[in-house]
């Protein structure tokens, strides 16, 4: 179960998406997420889905690998859907006991489900197709302007890259620790939430101990290899925009403009709607 979480993992293969400059991918993800909140009609959704599927297809990452990542946050997704389903006021569809489902509720729940799913899938594409080193390089350069304000961009980028590298290792370790404790009769499944939380102590203690030891070892190994912060470092793979990145930017911006154009009608009509409502309410 714990291995199903694919966020933060790198999927090794050769594809045009893999070869893109990480800055393109990062900006692309940001813009993609923004567009998700622009449109509120089926045409917009369809555009978003088509765009995402096209990117996934080009990336040569099996779609099953990406959807597997959703399993990890299934609880969050369901919770969002349920909350929106029951707590949105509006025209009543059905009502039982204290709960009421409204037409608006269904609409909002579906919209949220769509947005979250797309958001997770969209952002996992970046990590799946970009090595953490590359990703942090992208962040480092993309956020380079913060250096003017003395932001430790290089160090933060290095921290992120290391965190990403150790996620799979620590997950595997969690799995092994859980098995070791299961073999001693630990029970992670039965009981109420307090009992379940307590049952995790035998897993968390060894996990933290090991994580701290790893951190100490790693710091020593990095120092031994002359790491002394971001200053004075050179890059094995410096970021240089290529022709394909320009093409990607063109595609990306066309998609954004198209999204705005499709979404605009809805946004504008809602704007008038809200004005109208306010006017009536007055």
């Amino acid at each position: 179960m714990i291995r199903d979480i694919t966020i933060g993992q790198y999927y090794q293969t050769e594809s045009p998406v893999h070869r893109l400059d990480p800055r393109v991918k990062l900006l692309g993800t940001l813009l993609f997420i923004i567009t998700l909140f622009l449109y509120k009609n089926p045409a917009g959704y369809a555009l978003g889905i088509v765009f995402l599927l096209a990117v996934i297809k080009t990336s040569r990452v099996p779609i099953r690998f990406i959807t597997k990542g959703l399993k990890g946050i299934l609880v969050v997704l369901l919770l969002t859907v349920i909350i929106n389903l029951f707590l949105t006021p509006g025209t009543e569809l059905v009502s039982f006991w204290k709960f009421t489902i409204t037409y608006e509720g269904i609409g909002v729940a579906l919209t949220m489900l769509f947005r979250l799913t797309m958001l997770i899938m969209g952002s996992s594409i970046v990590t799946l197709t970009t090595t953490p080193n590359n990703l942090t390089d992208g962040l480092e350069k993309g956020l380079g302007f913060l250096k003017i304000f003395r932001g430790p961009v290089g160090d933060v980028a290095m921290m992120m890259s290391i965190a990403l590298r150790f996620i799979p290792i620590l997950m595997e370790e969690t799995d092994r620790i859980m098995k070791a404790q299961l073999a001693r009769g630990a029970d992670f499944e039965s009981g109420n939430i307090v009992k379940k939380a307590k049952a995790l102590v035998p897993v968390l203690v060894p996990l933290f101990v090991s994580a701290f030891r790893r951190a100490g070892d790693l710091a020593m190994a990095m120092e031994a290899r002359c790491y002394r912060g971001g200053d004075g470092r050179t890059k094995m793979k410096p970021l240089i925009y290529k022709k394909r990145d320009a093409i990607a930017y063109i595609i990306l911006f066309s998609f954004v403009i198209l999204s705005v154009w499709i979404g605009r009608w809805q946004v504008i009509s809602e704007f008038f709607n809200s004005l109208y409502l306010r006017f009536i309410l007055k």
Binding site: T131, S161, R165, R214, D217, C226, R233
Partner: peptide
């Protein structure tokens, strides 16, 4: 220096990037 635990001294997530880590720190040209 090479240490005991291989998992705790590899920094890169791709083999070649890890090998490049030391020279990068030394400021060796790309």
């Amino acid at each position: 220096m090479v240490f005991q635990n291989p998992d705790n001294q590899i920094i890169g997530q791709v083999v070649e990037e890890d090998v490049g880590f030391g020279p990068e720190n030394l400021g060796v040209p790309t």
